[in-house]
Design a protein around this nucleic acid. Sequence first.
DNA 1: GCGCGGCTGCGACAAAATGCCACATCCCCA
DNA 2: TGGGGATGTGGCATTTTGTCGCAGCCGCGC
Lengths: 177, 177
Amino acid sequence: MTERHLLIIDDDEAFCDILSRTLKRRGFDTLIALNIGAARDLLRNNAFSHAIVDLRIGDESGLEMTRILRTASRETRILILTGYASIATAVEAIKLGAMHYLTKPAAVDEIVAAFDSNEGDAQVPPPETSPSPKRLEWEYLQRVLLENHGNISATARQLGMHRRTLQRKLAKKPVRH
Amino acid sequence: MTERHLLIIDDDEAFCDILSRTLKRRGFDTLIALNIGAARDLLRNNAFSHAIVDLRIGDESGLEMTRILRTASRETRILILTGYASIATAVEAIKLGAMHYLTKPAAVDEIVAAFDSNEGDAQVPPPETSPSPKRLEWEYLQRVLLENHGNISATARQLGMHRRTLQRKLAKKPVRH
DNA sequence: GCGCGGCTGCGACAAAATGCCACATCCCCA
DNA sequence: TGGGGATGTGGCATTTTGTCGCAGCCGCGC
């Protein structure tokens, strides 16, 4: 495997840490930047073959970050990974040269698969099995619930779902697969 | 104004007619194709500077149509316009060379603006609100479906859900928020 | 102490979604 | 011409929702 220097740009430090650690086990050599300034500094002294960027880096824009990465190197494989996904930003990101656009939550396998797709055009077959929609939803609910400090009513409002329904979903155990 | 030859590919004839008439008033010289075959025929004898393509042309794929258009001419400004919008297909379409991706219903002004807009000077802010679980699921289904090249049975297996259920979910239009 | 607003858990019931089986087509031939 | 797989659809039995309503708690200001 060739060198895989990966830069993760996301303002969520805990998320970065976990992602970084996991990807290191997968053979990536990762660095983290919590904002665009930090990323710029790292770019001065490093060349990255891969990058994962969040759309919202604090109050900064991941699209701007993408532009910077692209300017620094046309070789970098840029992956957008965000909880604030929209079609408009996806379109923009791809135009800017991002190679893929995933929404949180996403399995690490999916991230790696996205990076590997088209690499030397050896097509990666789709995984045998992916998380079920139920599983994805459960993780998502947990994440938003955390954002709302465990407030069920607020979470339900934010998600546009009925509080009763959210309660019931949370009461259930996560589906395995 | 330079010549604006526009090809509309959509299986909804009424929609095509209205759109065509409106855009003619805006100075476009439009032709309509209700399916890929018809579009192919028109491409044999015409060169188009612009194209609007629906993602679901009957049971055919707008992505496939985009590929064909791109092959026919690298100059054509291709706009995807669909009621079944998803991030996965948007990413794919832009990679294939579409210049923009709008969701139905879209104002004619938006369409024209999209055609006229030049390179990504667009400032797209990420959304404030989180997507509803339904929306997230829709996006996910579309993504996996694309991975499986549109094979519904395979997608259902991969996701561990019933094929019938997947069919039904796909048949529905995506929820807005 | 008291009322108010917001959050929470939960029962009940109708409406909608899902799981599951069956069948008729198609299409392809790795 | 056969077999295997994919697809579209109809018809149920089950589950899961959407919605209301009600009661209990808690923090806060008067």
